[in-house]
């Protein structure tokens, strides 16, 4: 089994599970399919030798964010009749809009396709290793890194403040 075949299978599985996120009726099934999509994307990162991002994607996305989504779903305790219904017209409109977006982007990137025909040889294949990325992150991108920690503190305080149960409920 060649590497190309593996990546084609991975890509089609990613698209299929991404479609199931949108198509499945129950939100918990959507969450599970999204976790599967993230795992496939991580596998593609490993295939592209971006090992650090593959691990971060698995831990942060498939681990932390998706568990957060699942917790919220369990907390809300939704039942079948609470699922808001969509009209047929909006689905048709959205599919036309999304399909047009897809076609426009594919057409716009046609020149890139001709440039990257066949197998892609990677000039420097250790660009995605932890050592290289760590050196880059803590030298050139040190200030954005520190600012992102402030962003996290703001998000944490904001989440606690927003989700705090208030004494009287506003109607």
């Amino acid at each position: 089994m060649s590497l190309q075949m593996i990546s084609v299978i991975l890509g089609s599985l990613t698209i299929a599970s991404g479609l199931m996120v949108v198509l499945s009726k129950h939100p918990i099934r959507s969450v599970i399919y999204l976790v599967i999509t993230f795992f496939f994307i991580s596998a593609m990162y490993i295939l592209m030798n971006a090992q650090f991002l593959a691990i971060v994607n698995m831990i942060v996305y498939a681990g932390a964010i998706m568990v957060l989504f699942l917790f919220v779903l369990m907390l809300l305790n939704l039942n079948k009749e609470m699922e808001p219904e969509t009209t047929r017209m909006s689905i048709i409109t959205a599919v036309i809009a999304g399909g047009t977006l897809f076609l426009v982007m594919i057409t716009a990137l046609r020149d890139t396709f001709q440039y990257g025909k066949g197998y892609v040889q990677v000039p420097v294949q250790d660009a995605g290793l932890v050592e290289k990325l760590g050196k880059l992150l803590f030298s050139k991108y040190l200030v954005p890194f520190e600012i992102s920690s402030i962003l996290f503190i703001a998000a944490m305080v904001g989440a606690v403040l927003l989700a705090k149960r208030e004494k009287q409920i506003i109607d």
Partner: peptide, 16 residues
């Protein structure tokens, strides 16, 4: 090599 060609990965990400 990174498995498939560049256009395949672009296709997958645009589709997603």
């Amino acid at each position: 090599n990174i498995g498939a060609s560049l256009d395949f990965y672009i296709f997958v990400s645009i589709a997603l």
